[in-house]
Design a protein around this nucleic acid. Structure first.
Lengths: 105, 105
DNA sequence: CTATATACGTAGGCTGGCTACATGTAGCCG
DNA sequence: CGGCTACATGTAGCCAGCCTACGTATATAG
């Protein structure tokens, strides 16, 4: 998959992977690998800044915890993050309808 | 639709709209509007440079003609443009499967 | 004691579509 | 006939957003 195609959909992926569960950054990267059968392997330099951005936007909340000596910042969706996720999903459907419609006409 | 989501899919759109017919730049923009029910309204500063790039890549060929006093550069798919379009379509299907799979899991 | 996996983070670069601008013709409306 | 809108092509430079490359640190296996 070309690298640039991800653009504009990163937020949706991060929100979706946190839907209904709390995960820390490293686990988010692994979860995305799993759910995509290895197709998505996001670098930390992409994911960590994005998570902080989403937190600043009020869509995620985080707290530190320590698991076997290692510090983790664990993220969860906020109420408004849930709404943002719903909006992102709607936009995804519209996007695929529009582009897909042109490609398969 | 967010502006940046288009990134990485523009070539596919342009190739697809030229599949089986010849069109000039202005008509390409209109054709994309039509096929997308108005959702896609690409600026000329996006389309014209992209067409020249695709021509340099060997995927399009163009020729000038004059219709009622106005000059038009009319584009058509080359053989290798056809192949590129097929590849773009395959990539689109993979892309939507991967991202859609994560969003709707 | 070294390698690997786990874990977080930032600075700066790159790329590709967009904004803004420049140019010109045809046809319509008042 | 004068101005406005639609038609038609094109470039220079900006900027958002993701990635590359780096830096830091602990736990566990061999």
């Amino acid at each position: 998959m070309k690298a640039d195609t991800l653009r504009g959909h990163l937020d949706a992926l991060l929100l979706a992977v946190l839907d209904g569960r709390k995960l820390h950054g490293y686990a988010i990267i692994e979860a995305l690998q799993l759910r995509s059968d290895g197709a998505l392997d996001l670098p930390t330099g992409t994911v960590y800044p994005a998570l902080r951005r989403l937190e600043r936007a009020g869509w995620l909340a985080s707290e530190w915890d320590v698991v076997s000596g290692r510090k983790r910042r664990t993220y969860r969706l906020t109420r408004s993050g849930q709404q943002a996720l719903a909006a992102e999903r709607a936009e995804w459907r519209e996007f695929t309808t529009v582009i897909g419609g042109v490609l398969e006409a």
